[in-house]
């Protein structure tokens, strides 16, 4: 185990998805798929040792960020976090996702790391996981039997475990198209400005004036997987959003989360701030319905 020397493995470099799936059906459990490698290679320096790495680097055409008003947003498996940060349409329409990419890691890891990699990494603290879950959407998987879509609500099964089968490649992340009154917000609490989240939260609202017609609220690092806070959503849905209602929602959030102690924070703290963070992201989401996000002055390098 060494941060200087990687363990020995065999590199698979398919040039199209069919070949990739073929290789995965052959090597199954012994292979790790690599997109940007910013998570996988770190993992391999601290103890993971897959026999094969299947790199998506040579497959052309997976690095897209595409939007249309009907189907929503599609992010290809090789689209980097930097691409998402630079995307005007994401910044305009999927503010939570944009912000979760903007604060994700460092310029260097954003230049290599992918959004889909973040989703597949299935870390409960994953920033894009949290934002994507709030937006709502699905992961498109391709396996020997063809393509299938798994709703994000069903995608993460447990700590670092997803619904992807060993012979499948994740091809893209799809997020639902915004409706009228759409807004979203994301926030994370960290030890230093740049850091993995101690806790993160994201909300997507569909507002009708002051009334919250629909809401999706997601929270990370408070359970083995990124959580949908459905009880809290119920508090808001169909109601006029007032400070009092937000307090009620925060109380529901504190009941729904199941945090633990680790090096980054404590269970007690996470539970305490979960409500605060939920309130803030809902407020941000509501604010963003009206206009462009306040962070667009920033652009990643």
């Amino acid at each position: 185990m060494s941060s200087r020397v990687l363990p020995v493995f065999d590199l698979l470099l398919p040039s199209n998805l069919e070949e990739a799936v073929g290789l995965l059906s052959q090597h199954g459990d012994q292979a790790a798929v690599m997109a940007g490698g910013t998570d996988l290679l770190v993992g391999m320096k601290v103890g993971m040792s897959p026999a094969f790495i299947l790199s998506l680097a040579d497959i052309q055409g997976l690095d897209y960020v595409a939007f249309d008003a009907k189907h929503g947003l599609r992010i290809g498996a090789m689209a980097t976090l930097s691409q998402v940060v630079d995307s005007k349409v994401v910044n305009d329409k999927y503010h939570a996702l944009w912000y979760s990419a903007f604060t994700n890691g460092t310029p260097q890891t954003r230049n290599a790391g992918t959004v889909v990699g973040n989703i597949l990494r299935a870390s409960p603290a994953g920033d894009c996981c949290c934002a994507a879950l709030a937006h709502g959407g699905s992961v498109l998987l391709q396996g020997p039997a063809g393509k299938r879509e798994v709703d994000l609500d069903e995608f993460w099964l447990d700590y670092r475990k997803t619904a992807r089968k060993p012979d499948e490649v994740a091809v893209e992340l799809k997020l639902k198209a915004p409706e009228h009154g759409y807004g979203s917000g994301f926030a994370a609490l960290t030890r230093s400005y740049q850091d993995l989240a101690k806790i993160n939260a994201a909300a997507r609202v569909i507002m009708d004036g002051k009334v919250c017609r629909k809401v999706r609220l997601a929270m990370g690092a408070v359970a083995p997987i990124t959580l949908r806070l459905k009880e809290a959503e119920k508090v808001l849905t169909g109601q006029e959003v007032t400070d009092q209602l937000l307090e009620q929602m925060a109380a529901a959030v504190r009941k729904e989360v199941k945090p633990i102690d680790d090096v980054r924070s404590t269970a007690e703290y996470r539970r305490e701030v979960a409500g605060v963070l939920a309130k803030r992201v809902v407020q941000d989401a509501i604010k963003s319905v009206a206009g462009p996000c306040p962070y667009s002055c920033f652009m990643g390098a």
Binding site: S3, L11, G37, T38, L41, V42, I53, S55, A57, P107, Q108, T109, N111, A112, A301
Partner: peptide, 13 residues
């Protein structure tokens, strides 16, 4: 112009 990390990049790629 694009900054990347030598330690998390496979030379083979």
């Amino acid at each position: 112009e694009k900054a990347i990390l030598g330690c998390l990049t496979l030379a083979a790629s």
